[in-house]
Design a binder for these strands. Structure first.
Lengths: 215, 215, 215, 215
DNA sequence: GATGAATGAGAGTTCATTCAT
DNA sequence: TATGAATGAACTCTCATTCAT
């Protein structure tokens, strides 16, 4: 957690540090990211970073928290906007397409998502993914439960299993397009314009077959 | 690829190096793992490592290759042994249970799988996961295609989408039980004896609903 | 170029680093010189060197630059002081004698000159000798051109060829007295007091015959 | 000096070692050259090198000796062949042109010459250049003395000073064309076809003026 | 509160040389 | 005589963190 000093800082200074840190950690991950570089690019003394955060991990955790919040806010806003009139799965398809698009256009959020998902230190990983997963669930669980209540999902659908799969699928959809070798089947990383959209539709079709009403 | 020197080495020395390297890379991943530590724990001069492998990546690749082969051999042997008489999904359940059990009892393979899945360096990650995914697919794709041919999977089942999901689910089943926070839904990490088995059954039920014959 | 940090350093610390670096690079050249040794002898942490200079080459280049400037300043001052009244070649003899004497009494400058002339790495050598030669020429060319204008050198003397020879002769005069085997003819390395002076006079006589007015 | 073992070796094995060593030392110099590489390229065990030569320096010295002999033999053969009928300096011009051409077409000899002239270790340098200079003088001194006896050089010409200059000029002519920055005056390194020839003629003109008969 | 110089452990890699076989 | 595995010191360079100013 940032120190009290950090909170008292002028907004511009906070921005400078955050921007530099996002760029660096985004590009090189937590272990690979250098506080030297962050301080230099932020135009801030190296020592100052340690006045704001207890250590490297603390700064990183704060960053992840902010990015998670931005991602969540964007998706919640989209969820509120999308039309659910034609049923759950069409809307859900829209949502996943937006999800893929969001990470295509938001490098920093993508980088942070990658770093969170790939954190090699077990303790750090548990902490950081626990936070991320909580955010995911707070958005997704009510949505699925509502869909089940309205009959879009079958009454006997295992909503929790659906959630578990989504916790795997969502980061994958965000990252695989930018990491060749990670998805050798649906071809998310292929340099074909509509490949990600096609992949999304195939996955939603699977979820529909598994959890939707039998047609 | 290891050098010729490595192949000529007495088994005991190779064991010492491999054991130390597995422990280190397992604990800290490729980028984080230290050749210093490996050499020290193997009781071998630092320079000797470079007589055996051209560089750090070479040693790591060799390790992954060995572990992948062990995992694959074990599962192929199990696949040959399990009874497919009662249909695909019961057998598949057995297989996933064995998968979970294998990683419960094989720390090293678990560690290497973790390292492979969590490698933060993008280039290294692409390389190493590409190899791992190839192994997965060479085993899984024929199995699913055969199941579709015999009618255990629906004729219109999207086998490739099934495969894509399995590439996410399998590492998750292997690792989540040992990383709290990674699976906050099905409770794989919970310290309850049959929790992993229950999780496996629920996931297989989802796959059955999505890809199996309508009952 | 040294970093800003280097410029802000207390003079004593800078001296310690420079002294250690001059000694080390002087003794072992650029490629052979060790930053470990320099840091140790300077009483400075290894890492500190990298706060002052971006890398080994940067430190070395700074050193050469300083030494070149000292050498040049000394010779320019001497040139201004010497009497040119009795013609070019007598004055030039004085100048070369001073040159030999300077390097006899300035070990560090001699060492750096040696390092520059003997750098085995081709790229480093080209860079470092290019700089040194520029210094030589900026002093020597105007001097020779002036001597030609005043008639001390023949009108048809090939001043540029003169310069080319001086670029060989000057480093040789500086170093040969301290490297037996390097000059087996004029005996610069011989332990006879006036041998270098004799050698200088003989060489100047050659230049006089080649470029001076016919007597 | 090579060991007795080396002398007893089959010619083919000696050739393999020498070829590999020339290539390596030629490319990277003495300090930079690696015995590892030499042994590998020669197809010889690393340990064997130490049966043939007491250490790295010993191998290197032997190599220099051989190259010096080849260079000398070539030039002596040329000297015997060239026509001295039109006087010393025209023939001498031919000789220097051949010298430049020889090093243009003999990479290995050029590399060894460079290594010898640039050896940064003082003791090694003294030894190795002493040998090389002895070779130079054994060829050049009789030639100049003969030229003086026949009247091509003035009776009062300082032959020894001439020799001293040639010991500087010859290696320079051999190497400068391949080391930019080394000769910023006559432009030996310039990529112009006849530049070296022009430089040679200018230098010979200087020597003619200095040591030849007054025209 | 801000600074930035200092630290020193540690990184991967190379190397000449030794010596048991 | 030939081999090549083993060594370990040495290399340049990076880094998070401390602390006096």
């Amino acid at each position: 957690m940032p120190t009290a000093t950090w909170e008292r800082l002028p907004e511009s200074r906070r921005r400078a540090v955050l921007t530099a840190a996002e760029a660096e950690f985004g590009a090189r991950g937590f272990s690979g990211g250098s506080l030297n570089v962050i301080a230099r690019n932020a135009g801030v003394a190296k020592g100052s970073l340690f006045q704001y955060f207890t250590d490297k991990a603390d700064l990183y955790a704060h960053l992840s928290e902010l990015a998670s919040r931005r991602i969540r806010a964007h998706m919640e806003e989209f969820i509120a906007r999308v039309s659910w009139a034609e049923g759950f799965f069409p809307a859900y398809t829209e949502l996943l397409l937006e999800w893929v698009e969001y990470f295509r256009t938001h490098e920093i959020e993508r980088a942070v998502t990658a770093a969170v998902n790939l954190e090699p230190d077990p303790a750090a990983r548990a902490a950081v993914r626990g936070v991320a997963n909580r955010h995911y669930l707070e958005v997704l669980r009510p949505m699925l439960q509502h869909a089940q209540a309205t009959g879009d999902l079958r009454a006997d659908a295992d909503v929790e299993a659906f959630l578990a799969l989504l916790l795997l699928v969502l980061p994958h959809l965000a990252l695989a397009p930018y990491s060749p070798g990670l998805d050798p089947v649906l071809g998310l990383a292929a340099d074909v314009p509509d490949q990600p959209a096609a992949a999304v539709r195939r996955l939603v079709a699977v979820f529909d077959a598994a959890f939707g009403q039998r047609h």
